[in-house]
């Protein structure tokens, strides 16, 4: 399910089956040319990745709108905001909230976050539409799907 009118209508009707939120955390920073390019490219890859995961597990996952933040922002404050999002989402019966990000600085603040954080190293091999990039993303999707399924099985 995605953050779209039709999907939400369907969600409301079959709430008992959709118990997981997937929330991409995407940093932005426009002040430096080099960083901006890197962040834009990672954001593109993250969107593809998140969409692919959602496609595999449509019937149990809600892909939330991206959470954007300044790369230089204080992560403690950001974690607090994030927990606020999570708290609101849990008012629906969402029992799993999974954050997915390429930004390694979240790793240090994992304990401030009340839910599962999935950090994966960003890989960028040439063009985003190239064959090898497709292969890498497919591989990452497969492994992430396995991981999410293991969260489901643990309770």
């Amino acid at each position: 399910m995605k953050w779209r009118k039709n999907d939400i209508q369907q969600y409301v009707q079959s709430k008992e089956y959709i118990d997981t939120i997937l929330l991409p955390l995407i940093p932005i920073q426009l002040s430096s040319d080099d960083d901006a390019e890197k962040h834009a490219s990672q954001s593109e890859v993250m969107n593809i990745l998140a969409n692919e995961i959602e496609k595999e597990l449509t019937g149990r996952i809600m892909l939330a709108p991206n959470y954007h933040y300044l790369k230089s922002a204080d992560k403690q404050l950001e974690s607090k905001r994030l927990n606020g999002w999570a708290e609101d989402m849990k008012k629906q019966p969402f029992s799993h909230i999974v954050y997915i990000t390429f930004d390694s600085s979240w790793k240090k603040h994992e304990k401030d976050i009340s839910d599962n954080l999935l950090w994966m190293p960003a890989v960028q091999v040439g063009e985003i539409n190239s064959k090898e990039m497709h292969g890498i993303i497919r591989e990452q999707v497969g492994q992430t799907v396995e991981l999410i399924r293991s969260y489901w099985q643990s309770n």
């Binding site: 369907q10 079959s14 089956y17 959709i18 496609k55 595999e56 597990l57 449509t58 019937g59 149990r60």
Partner: peptide, 8 residues
């Protein structure tokens, strides 16, 4: 596509 809620 699963006929339940559309997973693969």
């Amino acid at each position: 596509v699963c006929k339940h809620l559309g997973c693969v």
